[in-house]
Simulated assay, not measured.
Amino acid sequence: MRHGKKFNHLGRTASHRKAMLSNMASSLILHKRVSTTVAKAKALRKYVEPLLTKSKSDTTHSRRTVFAYLQNKESVKELFDEVSVKIANRPGGYTRILKTGYRLGDNAEMCVIELVDYNEDMLSTTGTAAAGAKKTRRRGGKKKAEGTAAETNAPEATETPAAESNDSNGETKDA
């Protein structure tokens, strides 16, 4: 029975799993996006998010702790110099998993795991969605404004013919 055993073993020995997650985390930090299976992505998210949180405090101890997990000097440098600056204000949820379909060979469910603050397409999409929502509200306000403008224009339109008198020749005179 598997009572209380929460993490996915991914069909590997402990040392293989540790090495694989370390390599995937380094690749994710360096390239900001990794294409993999959903099971590996979920395991990677649990592995890398505490490291990203630890990178927010740039101390020697936190650098050494992160290096113990990643074993890659370049990815540690990238993490503390660039990534931690971008995620400084984010309270958590540094990664996003986007499902992409099924692999052709074994029908495994594939996905892309990426760092949230580095996807410009998603950032611009959320910005336009928020702007779209505002436009919808404004449009409703414009209809009301147009309705009130039409009401204010209506008396002016009735006053104009009353102010002008028609001559028998069809010409208008100002009264």
Rank of each mutant, 00 (worst) to 15 (best):
L79K: 11
F80E: 11
F80S: 08
D81H: 13
E82C: 04
V83G: 04
V83S: 05
S84I: 06
V85C: 05
V85L: 11
V85N: 13
K86E: 13
N89A: 14
P91Q: 11
G92K: 09
G92I: 02
G92R: 01
G93A: 01
G93V: 07
Y94F: 15
Y94T: 06
T95Y: 09
R96P: 00
R96N: 03
K99H: 02
T100M: 08
T100W: 00
T100L: 04
G101L: 07
G101R: 06
G101Q: 11
Y102R: 14
Y102L: 14
R103P: 01
L104V: 14
D106A: 03
D106W: 10
N107E: 08
A108D: 12
A108W: 08
A108G: 14
A108C: 08
V112A: 02
I113R: 00
E114F: 05
V116R: 04
V116M: 05
E120C: 03
D121N: 10
D121M: 02
M122C: 01
L123S: 12
S124T: 13
T126S: 05
G127N: 13
G127P: 00
T128S: 10
A131I: 13
A131M: 13
A131E: 12
A131N: 09
G132C: 09
G132W: 08
A133R: 12
K134H: 08
K135M: 07
R137G: 06
R137N: 04
R137P: 00
R139S: 09
G141N: 12
K142Y: 15
K142M: 14
K142Q: 15
K143C: 05
